[in-house]
Design a protein around this nucleic acid. Sequence first.
DNA 1: CATGAATGAGCTTTCATTCAT
DNA 2: CATGAATGAAAGCTCATTCAT
Lengths: 215, 215, 215, 215
Amino acid sequence: MAQKSTPAPRRMPRQDRSRAMVDRILDAGQEMLIAHGYDGASTNRIAAAAGISPGSLYQYFPNKDAIAAAVIDRYSDQLSARVAARVSERLDQPAPHYVRESIAALLDALDVHPDFLRAVMEQTPRLGSGSKLLAFEQRIGELTVAYLTINKGVVRPDATFETAAWMLVRMVEHLCVRYILDQPAIDRDTFIDEITVMALNYLRPWPTPPEDCFP
Amino acid sequence: MAQKSTPAPRRMPRQDRSRAMVDRILDAGQEMLIAHGYDGASTNRIAAAAGISPGSLYQYFPNKDAIAAAVIDRYSDQLSARVAARVSERLDQPAPHYVRESIAALLDALDVHPDFLRAVMEQTPRLGSGSKLLAFEQRIGELTVAYLTINKGVVRPDATFETAAWMLVRMVEHLCVRYILDQPAIDRDTFIDEITVMALNYLRPWPTPPEDCFP
Amino acid sequence: MAQKSTPAPRRMPRQDRSRAMVDRILDAGQEMLIAHGYDGASTNRIAAAAGISPGSLYQYFPNKDAIAAAVIDRYSDQLSARVAARVSERLDQPAPHYVRESIAALLDALDVHPDFLRAVMEQTPRLGSGSKLLAFEQRIGELTVAYLTINKGVVRPDATFETAAWMLVRMVEHLCVRYILDQPAIDRDTFIDEITVMALNYLRPWPTPPEDCFP
Amino acid sequence: MAQKSTPAPRRMPRQDRSRAMVDRILDAGQEMLIAHGYDGASTNRIAAAAGISPGSLYQYFPNKDAIAAAVIDRYSDQLSARVAARVSERLDQPAPHYVRESIAALLDALDVHPDFLRAVMEQTPRLGSGSKLLAFEQRIGELTVAYLTINKGVVRPDATFETAAWMLVRMVEHLCVRYILDQPAIDRDTFIDEITVMALNYLRPWPTPPEDCFP
DNA sequence: CATGAATGAGCTTTCATTCAT
DNA sequence: CATGAATGAAAGCTCATTCAT
C-alpha cells in the first residue's frame, strides 16, 4: 500500500561494496607481499595494484600493518576452511586413516599458495600477536586434545594430552610448511606417511619392553 | 730489536684489527636487531652502537643485509659450537641418552639468547639463502644419518635414512625454538623427555608381531 | 488552511534550518579549534562533531578557512554584544567610572571562553582581513573618538582624537587579552585599576604650571 | 717543538661549516615563512630554498617546528641586539629622552623586516613556549623594573614596579607591532611621541587634585 | 682507511575537496 | 540537499648509501 520505505535494493549495497573493496585491497596486498616482501609492499604499491588511490586504503585499514595482518588472517581462514572441509568428510574413518588424511589435507591446503606461504613465513615480521594463525594452531590443538581424549585407549598412559597436542600440532605444521618451502627430495606420499608415523608412534603404547621377550 | 722507523710493534696486525672491527659491528648489529627488530636496526644505529662512522660499515660489509646475515651466521656458529661441545662429550653414552642429551644441548644453546632468537625468527626476513643456519641443519642432518646408519639395528627397516634425518632435524629444531619463544606450560624436563620420545619412537621398529613372542 | 500536499507545516522553514545548521557547524568548528588548534581542526573532524557528512560542510561554506573565519566572526559578535550590553547600562556614570567599567566589561567578556581566545590568538592564522574582529576594534575606536569629543575638556589639548583612540583601543584590548592568556601575578581589580589609569592618564592635561596656583 | 697536535686549520672547520649551514637553513626558513606562511613553509620547500636536500635539514634540526622556532629565535636575538645597541648609547640621557629613544629603537628594529614580523605574528602558531621572544619580553621587563627603581622619585608612590613593568612592556611592544603591521594614518614621530606620553604619564605622580587649586 | 655530511628516492599517512548516488 | 567514498597531491620524515676530505 504505502510506498516501500526502503529504496530499491541496489546491485551493490554499501556493505557489499565495502566488502568487495576490502577484498580488492587484500588481493593487492597479497600480491605485493609475494612479489616484493613485506618491506617492499609499500602502501602506494598496494593501492596501485588495487586500482585505487593511496588515500582510499585508509578508509578500510588504519595502517599498513593492519593490511598485512588482514591478508594473513584471510589466508588463515582459507587454510582453516580448506582443512576443515576435508577433515569433516572423514570423521567416520578409522583413526590412522583420519590422521593421515588430516595431514594430507593440511599439506594440500598449504600448497595452494606456496609463494604466499613463503612470503609470510620468510619475509613478514610477526605483527600483532593476535593473528588468526595462532588461533588456527590453538583450534587444531584443541581438536587434537579432543581426539586424544576419545582415543585414550591407544595412547600411552603417561602422556599429558595438552603437552602432546602442543607438540604434535607444531611438529605437523612446521614439517608440512618446510616440506613445501624447501622441497626436499622426498616423495609426497612418503612424506605424508612419515609424518603420520611420527605422530602416531609418538603416543603409541609400546608393548612391554622387548627384553622381556627375549630373556 | 725493534725496528726504529715503526715506533712500536702493533699489537694488532691488519687482519686482526679488521677481524676485531667486524666483531664490534656484529655485536652492535645483534644488539640493534634485538632492541629494534630488522627494520629498526638502521645502519646508522649499528654504526653508532659500534662506535664507528656510518661510512666505515661499508668497509667491512657491502650493505645492510650482509651485516644481518653475518650476525645470524655468527650466531649459527655459536649454536653449532655449543651443541657440538656438549654432544661430543657423550659420544660413548647409550643411544637414547645420547639423543636426549643432544636435544637438551640444543635447547640450552637456543636459550642463551632467547631475545635474539626471537628477533631472528620473528623480525628478520630470510636473507641470502646461503645462511649458515641451513648449513647447521645440513650438518646435523648428516650426523643423524650417520647415527642412524650405525644404529640401524633398532630402526624400523622401511625407513630411508635421509628422509628420516630431514624430518627429525626439523622437528627437533622447530619444537625447541617454539618452546623457548612461546614458553608453553610444559616443564622443561618433561619437554625434553617428550621430544626425545617423539624422535626415538618415530623410527622404532614395531616389535615382531606379538604372536612371535608367545608362540 | 494548511495545504494538503505538505503533510504538516515544518517548524523550521528553509532559511531557519540553514541558519541552525550553520550554527551547529560553527559550534563544532569552535570546539575543534579549541581542542586541536587550527591545523588539527580538520574538516572531517568538524563535520563529525557537527553530526553531518564532510560533503555537507561545503553546502554552507566554500572551504575550511571560511569556517574558521565565521567562527571567529561569531565570537567577535558575541564579544561585541557582551561589552555593549554592559557599557550601555552605565552611560550616565561619570567618565572615569565609565572607562573603568568598559575595561572590566571587556575583560569579563574575553574571559568567557579563555581557551577559545587562546586558540584564536595563538593557533589560528589571520585569515581574510575582513574579519569582524577588526570591525570590533574599528567600532570601539569610533566610540572612543566620540567619548573624547564629548569630554574634550579634560583631554590635553594637543591630542588628535583619532590617533589617541587608535592607541587606546589597541592598548586596552591587547593588555586584557594578555592578562587572560598569560595570567600574570596581578590581582584582577588591580589590573583593571592600572589599565584604567594608563588610559586616563594618557590624555590627562598636565595641570597649568604650579606657579599659577601659588602666585 | 712537537708537531701541532691539531691539524692545520681548514678554511671552514667543522663547526663553522655547520654554523653556515644552519644559517642557510634559517634564511630559507625565514623566506618561506614570509612567502607561504607557516603551513605553506614545507620542509621540502625550505630545503630547496636552502639549496640542500630534504634529508639534510634533519641533520641540523629534529623537525619542522624546530626550524621555525630557531628562525624566530634568531629574529628575537637580532631584535634584542638592535635595540640594545641603540639604547646603550644613550644611557646618560635624561629619563624622558631615554624612554623615547628606547621606543624609537624598538620601532625601528621591528621595521627592519616588516614582512617577517607579519608572518610571525599572523601566520605562525605559538610553538614551544620557551621561545626567545618571551625571554626578550622578560628581559625588557626586568630592565624596566630596574629603571623604575632607580627613578622611583618621579613615579607615583602607589605603583607596584612589577605590575607596572608588565603593563608597560606589553603595551609598548604591541603598539609598535601593530603600528608597523597596520600602518595607521599616524605620523611616525607623532606615534613615538604618543606612546612615550602613554608610558610616562602612566606612572607620573600627578599633583594634588586640581580642585584644591581652584576652590 | 676513517669520517660523517650529504644525498634523494621513497616511505606512511593526512586531508581539503569533489561528485555519483 | 545530504551523503560519504574516493581522490591525489603533498606533507613530514627516514635511511641505505656515497664520496670529498
